[in-house]
Amino acid sequence: MRVEAIFFLGLIGFFVPMFVLYGLWSGWEPVGSTALALVVGLWGMVGFYLMILSRRIDPRPEDDPMADVADAAGEYGTFSPWSWWPLVLGIAVSFVFLGAAVGWWLLGIGAGIALVGLVGHVLEFSRNHHAH
């Protein structure tokens, strides 16, 4: 995790001067300056989170340059290959983005479908024969 944290925090050293240069050259144009300031803040938040996380957890096999491939073997999580809910969520996101291009009323339909898909995806293992 430490490598990822250094990557994110190190790129702040690039984005801050670009923010200042863009601001000076454009006369602090509000849209671009705000976007670059948000980029600096977001990369900083991710880098800070990864730095805190790297102190809390043990080093991973990916962090050891002398690690073998077999060191990372094992389970990575529980996945449901028979689930249809990701398709429902994908359709909902399509409606939301289509709503920005066609009409804002379509965004509401996409948000409703997304809510149904999200609840179904989260509670999938809590119903019927999949319940724990």
Rank of each mutant, 00 (worst) to 15 (best):
V3K: 14
W105A: 07
R127L: 11
G117F: 02
S126R: 14
R55N: 09
A37K: 04
I57L: 15
S54W: 07
S83Y: 08
F125T: 12
I113L: 15
G77Q: 09
G108A: 09
F125M: 07
Y49W: 15
P17F: 04
V40S: 07
G77F: 06
G120H: 06
A100L: 15
G77M: 05
A67S: 11
I109C: 01
I52Q: 10
A72D: 12
G74Q: 00
P81N: 05
L50G: 00
I52R: 15
P65D: 02
W82I: 11
F14G: 02
I113R: 06
D64H: 00
A72R: 14
A72G: 11
R55M: 15
S80I: 13
F125G: 10
G13P: 05
L24W: 07
V119T: 10
L9I: 05
G32R: 07
D64L: 04
T78V: 15
V3E: 11
S33M: 05
R2M: 06
H130C: 03
P61A: 01
F8G: 00
A101S: 13
G108R: 01
R2D: 03
L123I: 07
I109G: 07
F7L: 10
L9Y: 00
Y49I: 11
N128W: 11
V39Q: 11
E4R: 13
L87F: 11
S26R: 10
G108V: 08
L106R: 04
G99Q: 06
A37S: 09
G41L: 10
Y76V: 14
R127C: 06
W85R: 03
F7C: 07
D58M: 13
V46N: 01
V39C: 13
V31M: 12
A5P: 03
I57W: 09
F125P: 05
W105P: 02
A72S: 13
M18Y: 11
L38W: 03
F125L: 09
H130A: 10
W84G: 13
F15E: 03
G27Q: 02
W25D: 14
G120K: 03
A67G: 04
W104F: 14
S80N: 13
V93R: 02
A35Q: 06
S54P: 01
Y22E: 01
W82S: 13
E29W: 08
W28F: 15
L98R: 06
R55G: 15
L36G: 01
P81F: 04
W28C: 02
F125D: 14
F19G: 02
N128G: 10
P86F: 04
H129D: 13
F7K: 02
M1D: 10
E124N: 08
G117Y: 01
I12W: 05
L106I: 12
W85Q: 10
G44C: 05
L106Y: 05
V20Q: 05
N128S: 12
I6R: 00
G110Q: 02
I113Y: 02
M18Q: 09
S83D: 12
E62H: 08
W85M: 09
A101K: 13
R2V: 03
V3Q: 14
I52W: 13
G13F: 04
G108K: 00
V69E: 15
F7T: 02
A131F: 08
G108E: 00
R60Y: 06
A101F: 10
A70P: 03
G112T: 01
